[in-house]
């Protein structure tokens, strides 16, 4: 008898708690995510070069989305970084540094991949949207760190050249869930374009290092 009363009380308390927190009826986080993904497919339409497949997330995008703008825990971050590092295609000729003047033009251009862009034109990297680079350019953004004096402060050696190439090719190989696009991994820039951007950062003659 006493036990039955106790059980009833427990059930009643659980019921009230459920109503108060909304747990009793609210869908789970995974259910909301699944529904959101389906909603996106019906709420966007392809336009120009921007097809609906762009809404299909790869594992990195899916994982980073789930952490909602926050840094993932160390083990998850390490897994993302390893997978992205392994996918980098390094230049066959072993050369990482191209032409900084071409790199400067690529850094200035925000053209490419938008449905309003002409897909026949080369893409830019729009580095200045987020980073300070050459000090002559005052119109720079602050989402990423300043890259002024990038090579001068780090040294111009092969290791740093290779790091700069890898970072532009796939930023998430070094910093999981970085805000920076994976320019090589996702085919935004060509190998030569990445070398030219690396030159903007690493050539001692580049205004970035002056």
């Amino acid at each position: 008898m006493r036990n039955r009363h106790l059980l009833l009380w427990v059930a009643a308390i659980a019921c009230v708690a459920g109503i108060l927190t909304g747990c009793a009826t609210a869908p789970s986080d995974a259910e909301v995510s699944a529904k959101a993904a389906a909603m996106l497919k019906s709420s966007f339409k392809e336009s120009g070069q921007a097809k609906l497949e762009r809404l299909d997330q790869d594992e990195t995008q899916k994982t980073c989305s789930a952490y909602a703008g926050k840094t993932p825990p160390a083990d998850v971050a390490a897994r993302i970084e390893q997978a992205n590092l392994a996918s980098i295609k390094w230049p066959a000729d072993g050369q990482y540094v191209g032409d900084w003047k071409s790199g400067e033009r690529i850094a200035q251009s925000g053209q490419g991949m938008q449905y309003s862009d002409d897909p026949k034109l080369p893409s830019g990297a729009n580095c200045y949207a987020c980073h300070q680079l050459a000090p002559q350019e005052l119109s720079f953004g602050t989402i990423g760190p300043s890259l002024y004096l990038f090579g001068k402060t780090r040294g111009y050696g092969l290791e740093i050249q290779k790091y700069a190439y890898g970072k532009v090719y796939n930023a998430q190989a070094y910093n999981a869930c970085s805000n920076m696009p994976r320019f090589g991994h996702n085919g935004i820039l060509t190998e030569q374009q990445i070398k030219d951007v690396v030159a903007l950062l690493m050539d001692p003659q580049s205004p970035v290092n002056k």
Binding site: L40, R54, C64, M113, N186
Partner: peptide, 12 residues
Amino acid sequence: KMFYFRGGPHDF
């Protein structure tokens, strides 16, 4: 969910 949804060629 949409606000945090990363997608497309730029991961934005």
